[in-house]
């Protein structure tokens, strides 16, 4: 029996703008087990990015519970959630989100350094090697192509050996070739390290490589679909 890494119960998010209330998430519940992969799909404005943000503890819910690695995120403050992220979570974003003032290597090192670990350069180099950037260690993000930047982001995401990895349209800003490369890396490492993968995407092809697809519409979870492994 596998452990539940992430569970979401009755999650609701309401934005207030003046007198109006906008229900972005409407009583969403699901759970994800260790080592599995999950895709959240749906049209723009369906609430999928909000859901991702809430799951990763980047935002707080109006009501309902998100529990990540057994921690009830609602009860933690921002810095405690950051600590949880650092310990268990990896991120990959559509627009890479590398720190522009740091080199590729330094970007990768940051999460481990934040844990207070030293001599992390070796591990970072190894990972960059793994994503094929051994000759780009000391380049700054602005000197790298989009695909290369996303690979650096991947290396950064995996350096902490996260229990769970959140990816927000990871191939959205990439051409097909780079997109495939990134997708392969993502699922490869998911398997290799047993990392749980939570993916938000428009891309059905990408979604179909996961084990479970959640379809969102108007803030509700409208369908759960188990994907038969090809």
């Amino acid at each position: 029996m596998k452990d539940t890494v992430l569970s979401v119960e009755d999650l609701t998010k309401v934005y207030r703008s003046g007198d109006k209330e906008l229900v972005v998430l409407d009583h969403v519940s699901f759970s994800v087990e260790q080592g599995t992969s999950l895709a959240i799909i749906g049209p723009s404005g369906s609430g999928k990015t909000t859901l991702l943000g809430l799951c990763a503890g980047l935002d707080t819910a109006t009501s309902g519970v998100v529990s990540l690695m057994g921690y009830k995120l609602n009860t933690l403050d921002e810095d405690e959630r950051a600590h949880i992220r650092n310990q268990y979570v990896g991120f990959v974003f559509q627009n890479f989100q590398l720190l522009s003032t740091l080199t590729a290597l330094e970007n990768v090192m940051v999460p481990l350094e934040l844990r207070g670990e030293r001599n992390v350069a070796g591990k970072a180099k190894e990972l960059l090697n793994r994503v094929g950037l051994h000759d780009r260690l000391h380049h700054y993000p602005s000197q790298l192509s989009g695909g290369e930047q996303q690979r650096v982001a991947m290396a950064r995401a995996f350096i902490t050996d996260p229990k769970i990895l959140f990816a927000d349209e990871p191939t959205g800003n990439l051409d097909d070739e780079n997109a495939n490369h990134i997708t392969d890396l993502l699922f490869g490492m998911n398997k290799e390290k047993g990392t749980t993968l939570v993916l938000v995407t428009h891309n059905l092809e990408l979604a179909r490589r996961t084990q479970l697809i959640l379809r969102m519409k108007g803030g509700r979870l409208v369908e759960q679909e188990k994907v038969v492994a090809v």
């Binding site: 990763a56 980047l58 921002e78 950051a82 600590h83 310990q87 989100q97 720190l99 950064r156």
Partner: peptide, 11 residues
């Protein structure tokens, strides 16, 4: 925001 994402505290 990125730093916060990968786990740095506000301080």
């Amino acid at each position: 925001a990125v730093l916060r994402c990968v786990g740095s505290s506000g301080w």
